[in-house]
Amino acid sequence: MPTLYLMAAIYGAIIPGSAVPDTAEKTRSILLVSGSIHYDLVLPLDDMTLERFAPLAAKGIWLDHPSAEWLVVGWGAQHFYTQTRASTDLGLYALWRGVVGDSSVLRFDIAGALPDDLDARRLALTDREYATLLDEVWGSLTTGADGLPIGTDVDGFNQTDGFFAAKGRFNILRTCNVWIGDKLRAAGLRFGIWTPMPLSVSLSFDLYQAE
């Protein structure tokens, strides 16, 4: 079974989803940053990002921090993601919930200047593609009657991040890395049709988005 899953994860990364090319100049740039468990989207805190995610400031995400340059975004299973900061924290219950299914959360954090040796992949987008990506990420949040994201009752990993309720359920077929691929394709980028593993994201990027 693990072998079949791995093979499917590779094929899913190789087969591109449909995309409508945008011929406008690619003026925006984002990063895919690989962690010990999954990939994060890392978005520049530019004018478009600050405007789209301004409501997060009311929920404790310090977007206007004087040293903030990037917004880090990750989606995942509520129990697995909030309780597993690193692979060494992985427990059987969290793993089981990740396999059979769990509600989902989005984690937001800010970052300053990034180290030169960061394991990151850079993607170039047009303004339209970037605006769509921002809308897609925001659309993954569950919001309240006030239009603000709904926070969770778990602590973040540090002093600047936070977890928020998200739409959709996490399971072994719809992982955090699948979410990454879904958002990139929805923005119009050419990317693998199913990317459940970090390997899938890396392979699909190298095939279709490497500059």
Rank of each mutant, 00 (worst) to 15 (best):
191 F>T: 11
6 L>A: 15
155 D>R: 15
174 R>H: 14
88 T>E: 06
63 L>F: 03
40 D>M: 12
76 G>P: 06
6 L>T: 11
200 S>T: 10
204 S>T: 10
126 T>Q: 08
86 A>N: 13
34 S>W: 04
58 A>N: 12
27 T>L: 13
28 R>E: 14
40 D>W: 04
153 D>G: 08
134 L>P: 00
109 D>M: 01
156 G>R: 04
7 M>R: 14
91 G>I: 03
172 I>G: 02
147 G>M: 07
134 L>T: 01
193 I>F: 11
167 K>E: 11
119 D>C: 11
170 F>H: 13
7 M>D: 06
106 L>Q: 06
81 Y>I: 00
106 L>R: 03
181 G>S: 05
205 F>Q: 00
29 S>C: 12
178 V>M: 00
149 P>V: 04
172 I>S: 11
66 P>C: 05
116 D>K: 13
26 K>R: 13
211 E>G: 04
79 H>Y: 08
31 L>W: 14
65 H>P: 01
189 L>Q: 09
57 A>H: 04
61 I>F: 02
88 T>Y: 13
163 F>G: 00
151 G>E: 05
138 W>T: 00
204 S>L: 13
57 A>E: 11
91 G>T: 06
210 A>G: 02
152 T>I: 05
200 S>D: 10
63 L>V: 08
195 T>F: 04
190 R>N: 13
56 L>V: 03
41 L>D: 02
211 E>K: 13
206 D>L: 13
133 L>W: 01
11 Y>E: 09
68 A>R: 02
99 V>I: 15
194 W>C: 06
173 L>W: 14
21 P>R: 06
47 D>T: 13
191 F>Q: 04
34 S>M: 14
74 G>P: 03
189 L>C: 12
168 G>I: 09
3 T>K: 13
164 F>T: 01
48 M>G: 03
100 V>W: 11
27 T>P: 06
189 L>A: 08
57 A>Q: 14
155 D>L: 12
74 G>M: 12
11 Y>V: 12
202 S>P: 04
94 A>R: 07
64 D>C: 05
70 W>K: 08
104 S>I: 00
101 G>Q: 03
86 A>W: 11
169 R>C: 08
151 G>C: 05
128 R>D: 09
203 L>T: 14
64 D>V: 10
177 N>M: 12
102 D>R: 09
58 A>S: 09
172 I>N: 07
28 R>Q: 14
178 V>F: 06
92 L>C: 06
11 Y>T: 13
200 S>E: 05
119 D>W: 08
21 P>E: 08
154 V>K: 15
108 F>K: 00
187 A>M: 05
156 G>T: 12
85 R>W: 10
159 Q>S: 09
14 I>H: 03
188 G>L: 06
73 V>C: 13
133 L>N: 06
150 I>S: 08
3 T>N: 09
174 R>T: 12
74 G>N: 10
8 A>C: 06
28 R>A: 05
101 G>E: 07
165 A>T: 15
